[in-house]
């Protein structure tokens, strides 16, 4: 794997910035992606992406399969580093720091930018250990402190009442929705600034999905959330901003309200009304 940082060969184009309606115009963006190109081998999966996202909002990435939305999401905490043959050009800044800079500690980055995946992936350990593991990894050893964070995280993930009496039982015995909330609790326990979610509810039933969506809306107060979803109604329900991608390009980025009632680009209109994609 090779990472090219940040050599700009394609013509720079202006980043799409979130409209000011939901953010103070003076606030600087928390996440700034500029002229980002990504290749998987010879396939150019992201084409000159420029987008800025503010803190404490939920941004949804939508688009047909293969449009690059998950790839861009994974660029935000360098998960693509783990894939062979990936080449990245451009810049991704979080809180002003280029996360592809040479001085970046990737482990530290992933602590600040947590991730929840499509398929819940709890460790084959107890509910307690699922959360405690990451805390210990980040140097928290005191049991009372770990206990307090576990309770706080499980409460924040709306799971505490359901599992408080069986914290030391295997997380694998929980339902799919509960497992996903364990993963969210695990992600928020280490207090990231940003939580990336890659179709976190796509494998869940409507009740479990509704709980995850409620949770996302609650977590927005504390964290910045970027979510990839194929479910446009879900994006409409939970996100403040929506970005539409197609064939590796960012086509349109605006408030969710605008994107789902009156998108500016025909491609977006056609996609959200189910006429292509």
């Amino acid at each position: 794997m090779r990472i090219d940082i940040p050599i700009r060969t394609s013509a720079p184009k202006p980043d799409l910035v979130p409209p000011a309606s939901l953010n103070a115009p003076s606030a600087s963006p928390l996440i700034e992606v500029s002229n980002l190109d990504l290749h998987y081998g010879t396939t150019r999966a992201l084409k000159n992406i420029g987008i800025q996202m503010h803190g404490h909002v939920v941004t949804a990435f939508i688009g047909p399969s293969g449009c690059g939305k998950s790839t861009l999401l994974r660029c935000l905490n360098r998960m693509n580093d783990l894939i062979d043959g990936v080449r990245i050009r451009g810049s991704v800044k979080i809180a002003g720091h280029d996360i592809y800079g040479k001085d970046i500690d990737v482990i530290e980055l992933r602590k600040r930018v947590g991730m929840v995946f499509q398929k819940s992936n709890p460790f084959p350990k107890s509910i307690y250990e699922n959360i405690a593991y990451g805390l210990r990894l980040h140097g928290i050893r005191k049991k009372s402190e770990i206990d307090a964070i576990i309770e706080r995280s499980l409460r924040a993930a709306a799971l505490w009442d359901e599992v408080k009496d069986r914290l030391h039982r295997s997380a694998m015995g929980l339902s799919g929705g509960q497992q996903q909330r364990v993963c969210i609790a695990r992600a928020i326990a280490i207090e990231p600034e940003v939580i990336l979610m890659d179709e976190p509810a796509s494998a869940l039933d409507p009740i479990a999905t509704a709980r995850i969506e409620e949770l996302i809306l609650d977590l927005r107060k504390q964290f910045t959330i970027v979510i990839v979803t194929h479910n446009m109604q879900q994006a409409a329900r939970i996100s403040d901003y929506t970005a539409f991608f197609y064939l590796g390009e960012l086509i349109e980025y605006d408030t969710t309200r605008k994107m789902f009632t009156n998108p500016s680009k025909k491609q977006t209109e056609d996609y959200v009304t189910g006429r292509f994609g």
């Binding site: 446009m232 109604q233 789902f260 009632t261 209109e269 009304t273």
Partner: peptide
Amino acid sequence: KAPLATDLR
């Protein structure tokens, strides 16, 4: 059926 954009309007 949860229509969006022009259809919703």
